[in-house]
Amino acid sequence: MKNETQKQGGAAGAGPNGAAIHAQGLVRRFGDVVAVNGVDLRVGQGEVFGFLGPNGSGKTTVIKMLTGLLPLSSGEAWVDGLDVRRDAEGVRERIGYMSQKFSLYDDLTVTENMTFYGSIYGLRNARLKQRMEATIELNGLEPYVDRQAGKLSGGWKQRLALGCAMLHEPKMMFLDEPTAGIDPVARRQLWDLIFELSGHGVTFFVTTHYIDEAERCSHVGYIYYGKMIADGTPEELKALPDVRPAGTKRVEITAPEITRALRLARAMDGIRTATVFGQAIHALVEEHFDLSEMRRELAGHGIHVTEVRELEPSLEDVFVELTYKHKETGKWATE
């Protein structure tokens, strides 16, 4: 037993130091489809890592591999210093996980849900009570402690889920689309809470579809057809040559009849890509592209452009560009 302990302790030490998550060459095959294709990840302690990608691109598979639910077809991964392949149980002990669906028990009260989750992690009696009180306070759940979870609104449900996932004070939290389907105010509050905890050294691995959430992350990864096609801080990603190729600029064109304008714009020489953002078109154009010429041409079709201005790329631009770029090659790799 003692030897075993030391050996496993040794395995924990073998994880690259400093990183909360360190993964190299993660591969997962389902039959002959390669669902996760050589993903490398390094998430520092206390970082808020935003993991983005279209539905079905392999996000959940990566989370399942990192939490030890799915065996790795090849590659290696350490979470909180533990080798996922060797000590999945230990990993699960140390992480908190909150899934995209509200996955607590509707018919149990807030207190009962917390008691259940706390006891799973081995919290008992005074310790459990103390942790529950602290978590309830942090998440502002006091008014609802005796309410059945099913009768809470979406935002409160997510707070309860987050509360249950952090009862055992994990240093590493996985949140799988935590804000899907909750209102903007609750969304903002949840993120405030995430940043507060990350300030205390908790690392977050968050998947999301909201670009504004990604903008707030300290580190963002974008997965497309099982491959990581972007990895860095939001600023680094915006400076990628693919996003801002030499000799181009980004402009925002505000005009009425936006869909017709888009169709016309896409046909023009000098416009590389164009997409609608609200009431405007975001376009990547050649440096020498004549904007007044474009105004005239659109006016010729009865569309009077109200405003044209140069634009910094947003993360959304980043992902759109990268997705375009990988569209041809972006297919599921098969064996």
Partner: peptide
């Protein structure tokens, strides 16, 4: 159905 099983698998419950 409720998705709670998925949640349980990510805990130390064996």
């Amino acid at each position: 159905e409720r998705g709670t099983l998925e949640q349980l698998f990510v805990t130390p419950v064996r």
